[in-house]
Design a protein around this nucleic acid. Sequence first.
DNA 1: AATTCCTATTTGTAGGACAAATATATTTAT
DNA 2: ATAAATATATTTGTCCTACAAATAGGAATT
Lengths: 236, 236
Amino acid sequence: MKNSLHTTTLADQAEEKIIEYIKEHHLVPGDALPNEMQFSEMMGISRNVVREAMSRLRMLGLIQSRTKRGIVVTEPPLLNGFSKVLDPQLLSINTLKDMMGMRLALEIGITDFIFANITNVDLKELDEIVARQKAIGINNLSIEDELKFHLKIYEIAGNQFIMKFQELMHPVFVFSKQNYENYFQPINRKLQEENKIITHVDILEKLKNRDAEGYRNAMRMHLHPYWEFLYNYTEK
Amino acid sequence: MKNSLHTTTLADQAEEKIIEYIKEHHLVPGDALPNEMQFSEMMGISRNVVREAMSRLRMLGLIQSRTKRGIVVTEPPLLNGFSKVLDPQLLSINTLKDMMGMRLALEIGITDFIFANITNVDLKELDEIVARQKAIGINNLSIEDELKFHLKIYEIAGNQFIMKFQELMHPVFVFSKQNYENYFQPINRKLQEENKIITHVDILEKLKNRDAEGYRNAMRMHLHPYWEFLYNYTEK
DNA sequence: AATTCCTATTTGTAGGACAAATATATTTAT
DNA sequence: ATAAATATATTTGTCCTACAAATAGGAATT
């Protein structure tokens, strides 16, 4: 039994083989795969091992299996694995920073989509969201208020994947915000002293004026504390 | 045995339980997990099923197991699952569009990072990349030339996650470009007639001038065909 | 105190068994 | 002849036992 970090188990090989099989046979969602025993015999390994591999692919959403029918390929949700792995507790500070960078890039990057898609109904909804939100401290809303506004923004962008992605990353941001509160507080205080705080109200104004460039700048400023964190925070 | 699409198998439950265990016990990378038999007894299920669950988590990179030592939590690479699932053959047209949107958003969204990080050495490298590339048809380079330029851009942005993400998405773009060539060609021809084609040379110019706004516009225009595809392509 | 050896534990793999589901074939009823 | 009910065979999901290989930790030796 090989077991070191650099050797692959039979399950790893089986997994690879099955994926390979799908690609080589140009299988598409709906197509059937050989059943467990057939793979077991094809590879000369026990059914248990094949099942481990299948179990992985099932988890990823690449396949579905049903008694008697066997195993069929399905269109996988792209983020099944990602969603299980995003525990902030397990992530290094560098990974957290990367996640933040991703969020900043996306939030600025979807600007063009937003302005291409936004309707008056959307603006009205945003109006209501902003009207209902309540301030908690400096440049800080409740997690829920913050989420509601930004989720609506993402919704307007109209990209399911980005939407899902953000949803999954959200707990990471909540964690960071709380875990590094001491770092964010003075930044926000300074912003306030310099009168540079940009709130959802300001951002919404840019949307109403259909001012994409202004929106980007406003959003950049709104997220400035994260930018600061990303570039300047170091541990201890 | 429950087996319909809406029921969970024991392996699903075991997987959930183990993840739950990690969270509830606040385990961090390096910490040990109960071994297979213990989970088996804890849950009143067979070791086989526990192994299926562990196999999944091992694939995601959440855990590592070694003989005798047992199972330890590890910091997971975030995109292990994503990488196995990104087979363009399996993705619907809408998912492909979402991926393209993601790419557009990211490529525009990292602008601020790029201008915060870029050095003269980077510019020199980009110069060389651009100098070596060769045109193939209208607004078209070889896959490799195209990749080299954009990868370097991502590298400058300095975000490992985004970098990895783009690397994984690249084959999807290659696929789309080839698969929908007929759609892209007339768009590029029209752009050429209107003299609106923006090449890597133009983009590089903006970088050299430290013109972020100009860069964003240039990149937007450079990627315009994808934008077109995203908003206007329909099947048949 | 350092080294070697031994032992017990744990994962990785194999193979057999059976229940539950269900596609397909067969029989029965209308 | 068609529809409904039944039987059959197949396949996944689960459980069990067994053993090899690795190895952590203790025991024995130098």
